[in-house]
Computed example of a mutant assay.
Amino acid sequence: MEKVVVKVVLEEGVQKPVYMTEGSAGMDVRANIKEPITLGSLERVLVPTGIKMEIPVGYEVQVRPRSGLALKYGISMANTPGTIDSDYRGEIGVIMINLSKEDFVITPGERIAQLVLGKVYQMDLVEGELSQTERGEGGFGHTGK
């Protein structure tokens, strides 16, 4: 698998994100909090990670929910996937949301999201007429349920 070098700065005590298996697309990232955070039903909170990155130009890092938290507890991200641009140098935060009816407790050091590196292409928008297709402007369920 191809590797891309990404510089990282970790706050004291923060574990470097790692791939949990050889074929993983995402690295697990952990909550950098001192005390547990209780996330009530339909509440959202920005959870710090203690991680800063220098992402190469032409790439982004996507922050994605963890499937286990989503399935077992209804925990997701309010802006999934979140995008970290190559020119951002601040701390990575995860906007977590509780979609269940039960409170969820985020504990210090808990794995809360995944970081996935992706190639980015910028668009060069050119005004003009669009070509015709069979679908046309049909969208939002136009083909059925």
Rank of each mutant, 00 (worst) to 15 (best):
T83E: 01
D87P: 02
G40L: 02
M77L: 15
P48S: 11
Y88E: 02
I92V: 11
G68V: 01
K72V: 08
L69V: 05
T38V: 11
E91M: 04
R64A: 04
I75D: 01
P56Q: 07
R66G: 05
I84T: 06
E54F: 03
S41A: 11
D85Y: 09
Y59F: 13
R44M: 14
V57C: 15
R89Q: 13
Q62K: 06
S86E: 06
V94R: 02
I95L: 14
R64T: 00
L42C: 15
V63Y: 01
T83N: 03
G68D: 01
P65L: 00
G68L: 02
T49Q: 02
V47R: 09
E43V: 01
Y73S: 13
V61W: 08
E43A: 10
G50P: 05
V63M: 04
G93P: 07
I55R: 03
M77P: 09
G50Q: 07
L46R: 12
T49W: 00
L42W: 15
Q62R: 08
E43S: 07
I55D: 07
I37N: 01
P65G: 03
S41C: 06
R44T: 13
T38E: 09
P48Q: 10
R44Q: 14
E91C: 05
I37L: 10
V57F: 15
Y88S: 05
G82R: 00
L39D: 03
K52M: 09
R64K: 08
V45W: 13
G90W: 09
G58C: 07
Y73I: 06
V57Q: 15
G74Y: 05
G74I: 04
E91V: 08
G93W: 10
Q62M: 10
R44K: 15
Y88F: 12
Y73E: 12
E60C: 07
N79S: 10
L71I: 14
I75H: 04
I92Y: 02
I75F: 01
K52F: 13
A78H: 15
N79V: 08
G74V: 00
V63G: 02
M77F: 13
G82N: 00
L69I: 07
L69F: 02
D85W: 09
E91L: 03
G50Y: 09
M77D: 04
D85G: 14
E91H: 07
V61N: 11
I51K: 02
T49H: 04
R64M: 00
T49C: 05
S76H: 11
G93N: 15
G68K: 07
E91K: 05
T80D: 13
S41F: 04
I37D: 04
L39V: 08
V45I: 12
G40Y: 06
I75E: 00
P56Y: 08
A70R: 12
